[in-house]
């Protein structure tokens, strides 16, 4: 009984963490992807590599460095504590920051690809007609790259749900604060609660499958729709 309510609490924490992370990632990932797509410099590859780093780095490495950084005795941890009055390490904010870093490539890369493929002529035409940068973004860039935005958001969200190593290191497994589904699942396996582990594993598996199917369905529909529109404009 208590185990089920504990798992529901872990589910709520996970959804909250993934939702907040996805929103933050869209806010910082979009401008970052735009600059990476438009920037012409030989240093660009270096920044692309930094964004892609979480793809290849073991999460425990990132988690270990973040743990050192968030510690109350280190500079970032101290600054946070004096600014907010609460400790950063082992808090909900800590796992959100960790997730933002860890899921960054999943949001930036699809957006960057979409912005690169977006030709300049629409934007130049709009600029000549007097549209400002924000207007150009929302009336041209966003509609044309909507599929990539949906892909990026869902991938960022889903990858955060599946995160384990970083949260394990910097979260501290605190119920209602930093205990997320993947860690609750690990606890069940460690404690040989295979029944609970099966429920959580199957739930995560099915939810992830549905979420990814939705991404591809939306992507396909938007793309075919877009192609149709483009054909019409050509005619």
């Amino acid at each position: 009984m208590t185990d089920i309510s504990a798992d529901i609490l872990a589910l709520v924490t996970t959804l909250k963490m993934a939702a907040v992370t996805a929103v933050i990632l869209l806010l910082i990932g979009t401008p970052l992807a735009w600059y990476l797509a438009k920037w012409q410099s030989r240093f660009k590859v270096f920044f692309e590599a930094i964004v892609a780093l979480p793809l290849v780095l073991p999460p425990t490495v990132l988690g270990f460095y973040l743990l050192l950084a968030f510690s109350p005795t280190s500079l970032p941890g101290e600054l946070w504590q004096s600014a907010t009055g609460s400790q950063l390490a082992f808090s909900f904010s800590a796992i959100v920051i960790g997730s933002v870093l860890y899921s960054l490539p999943f949001v930036v890369q699809p957006l960057q690809k979409a912005f690169e493929q977006l030709g300049d002529h629409h934007l130049e035409a709009a600029a000549m007609l007097g549209a400002g940068p924000i207007d150009r973004f929302f009336s041209i860039v966003f509609p044309l790259t909507k599929a990539s935005f949906i892909t990026a958001t869902v991938l960022g969200f889903a990858h955060t749900v599946g995160e384990f190593g970083v949260v394990l290191m910097i979260g501290g497994n605190i119920p209602g604060e930093t205990r997320v589904l993947s860690i609750a699942l690990f606890d069940h396996v460690e404690a040989f609660n295979y029944a609970n582990a099966h429920i959580l594993s199957a739930g995560l598996l099915i939810a992830s499958l549905l979420l990814l199917s939705l991404v591809y369905l939306l992507g396909n529909n938007l793309n075919s729709n877009l192609n149709k529109k483009q054909r019409v404009t050509k005619l």
Binding site: L67, L68, F70, S71, P72, T73, G77, Q87, A89, F90, L168, M169, G172, I174
Partner: peptide, 12 residues
């Protein structure tokens, strides 16, 4: 892991 976390201020 717990030892490392306590060393870095885990609220246990």
């Amino acid at each position: 892991t717990l030892y490392l976390q306590i060393k870095h201020g885990a609220p246990f």
